[in-house]
Simulated assay, not measured.
Amino acid sequence: MARIIYAEDDELVGEVVRDTLMDAGHAVGVIGDGVTALQVAKIKNPDLIILDCSMPRMGGVEVLRRIRNHQELFSTPVLMLTGRSSAADEQIAFDAGATEYLKKPFDRDELVFIIENMLDDAERRRGTKKLPMRYV
Rank of each mutant, 00 (worst) to 15 (best):
M1E: 11
M1F: 13
A2R: 13
A2T: 07
R3K: 15
I4S: 09
A7Q: 05
D10A: 09
V13E: 01
G14A: 08
G14F: 06
E15P: 04
V16R: 00
V17Q: 09
R18C: 13
D19I: 13
L21P: 10
M22D: 10
D23Q: 14
D23Y: 09
D23V: 03
A27Y: 08
V28F: 05
G29C: 07
G32I: 00
D33I: 00
V35I: 09
V35K: 10
T36C: 05
A37S: 15
A37N: 04
A37L: 07
L38H: 02
K42M: 06
K44N: 14
D47L: 04
I50V: 12
I50Q: 02
L51W: 00
S54P: 00
P56M: 03
P56F: 07
G60I: 04
V61I: 15
E62H: 03
E62Q: 12
V63T: 02
L64W: 02
R66A: 01
I67F: 00
N69G: 07
H70S: 11
Q71T: 06
E72V: 10
L73K: 00
L73P: 03
F74C: 02
F74Y: 01
P77V: 01
V78Y: 01
L79W: 00
L79E: 00
M80D: 03
T82M: 05
T82A: 09
S86F: 14
A87I: 14
A88E: 12
A88C: 02
D89C: 04
Q91T: 12
Q91H: 06
Q91F: 06
A96Q: 01
A96V: 02
A96H: 03
A98E: 03
A98D: 02
T99Q: 08
T99M: 01
E100H: 08
Y101V: 13
L102S: 04
F106G: 08
F106P: 13
D109H: 13
D109V: 05
E110H: 10
L111N: 06
I114F: 07
I115V: 15
I115N: 05
M118K: 08
L119A: 09
D120Y: 14
D121T: 14
D121N: 13
R124W: 12
R126M: 11
K129L: 15
K130V: 13
P132W: 00
Y135H: 10
Y135L: 14
V136T: 12
